[in-house]
Design a protein around this nucleic acid. Structure first.
Lengths: 251, 251
DNA sequence: TTTGGATAGTGTAAAATTGACACAAAGCTA
DNA sequence: TAGCTTTGTGTCAATTTTACACTATCCAAA
């Protein structure tokens, strides 16, 4: 649904935008929430783009990123990390891109620097639904993406790299899973983020040894095979772990 | 020496600046090149600041950072990495800061977002010299710094963290050393970046096993103790190593 | 009710890596 | 030449990593 910016009565800054790489995980592969800019824009360039917007003059960058996320999905309190700033003067060179920008009120002649963020959302928390006034958004598996509008493909790659590095250091993957999950789902998540196969038994041993999971006395239901035990991420145990200076998951 | 911006005839962008954390290593500890803003600015805030400047509308961010570095030190072709964008609306809130900004032509009312970079320079390549028109710059050991102008202290911390993470993954430390260096110097460099002691023998073993150093048939001269063998970083061997997918130095 | 299909869950042994630790060698200076 | 300072070196135990295969459990279809 469409949200009005809250508590901002100041001006849009025509020079700085934020773009969000919104990662999800469909229990099989890593996905990204992309905006379809429609037929008009596709004449000269890719239809799909990262959600983003200009920032207001009195909001900080993290707030702006959260606002973009909220406006698109209604979600807040979401794991969010900055990727970096992207600012080639010709990053919005293409005519089709400029036309589209015009339609959302930026001055197409101005040079725009964008600050990219990535966020991790449990995919079940947001099901895109077509709507006349909402932007047309959809989850797309990351390794099916070969091009995006503007410099967004480059931004996506940078975000993937950041995520890959980060997950070696902090167990942020849980932000992409439902609260209750199986070890196999976690396993597939790590494989798709790290983009390499991990031995099943070694993975399970390593995760279990960290002792940051709570095993529930509950099994999967309705699966056509041996049902898996369900687990929860245990925030308290993780805090204990980090207190000891631990910062390497060794993947 | 003072440089004129090269090949830029376009306008300064009043909304976006770059700041550089220029790291050096005095063979004992990690240092940063800071600008002394002088007595006037110190009335209400710290004198010392990171070198930085507004960007031109037609240069990209990396170019702008290189330009700042070049203008201050005359150096180019230097290892450079983006830290991220910093953009709290109140980051230049202090009156003294705004006065100073006015003097370098920014509109003090405008909201400025800064993109921070860190660079690694061999300290021997740049000796600051006081000069009437050059900015007054000096190397300061990082762990003696307790405050900086604007939000520069926060930026410095972020840069240190980035560097710490990066050096666990890539052997970028060599950019801080003279071409010929001893294993003890490399050892101290890693200790000061990682901010923890490393066992001497274990460190040497680990580095040697990587096989990315060329041992020179040359010893230190003029030291009042047993002279050390000198080594060079071997770029080719490092390339071989990374080709195998290696991305973890395990510190 | 039985069978087949699918995934869950488990252990071990060899190899590699890490961590802890102490002393002789080499050059300079006084 | 005696003393100071830093270099350079090896081993052993503990831990971690890697490679690898079969049984258990559930559902569905016959």
């Amino acid at each position: 649904m469409q949200h009005k910016p809250k508590n901002f009565n100041s001006e849009l800054n025509p020079n700085v935008s934020v773009d969000c790489v919104i990662f999800g995980f469909d229990l099989e592969q890593l996905t990204v929430l992309l905006i379809d800019r429609g037929e008009i824009s596709s004449a000269f360039g890719p239809r799909l783009a990262l959600p983003g917007n200009l920032i207001y003059d009195n909001e900080n960058l993290d707030m702006a990123a959260n606002r973009v996320l909220d406006e698109l999905t209604g979600l807040n309190n979401i794991y969010l990390e900055q990727v970096g700033a992207f600012g080639d003067p010709d990053r919005i060179l293409k005519e089709s891109d400029r036309e589209w920008l015009k339609s959302i009120r930026a001055e197409p002649e101005a040079r725009v620097i964008t600050v990219a963020y990535y966020t991790l959302v449990p995919m079940s928390h947001y099901k895109p639904q077509a709507s006349s006034f909402a932007k047309n958004a959809d989850w797309v598996p990351v390794n099916q993406i070969t091009e995006l509008a503007f410099d967004h493909y480059e931004i996506l790659q940078a975000a993937k790299d950041k995520l890959k590095q980060k997950i070696k250091i902090q167990p942020i993957g849980f932000n992409l899973l439902p609260q209750k999950f199986t070890l196999s789902q976690l396993h597939r998540l790590y494989e798709s983020i790290l983009d390499k196969p991990l031995d099943k038994r070694n993975f399970r041993r390593k995760i279990q040894k960290l002792n940051i999971l709570s095993s529930l006395r509950e099994k999967q239901r309705g699966v056509p095979h041996k049902p898996s035990l369900l687990y929860e991420f245990n925030e308290e145990k993780y805090q204990e772990l980090t207190q000891t200076g631990f910062d390497n998951f060794g993947f």
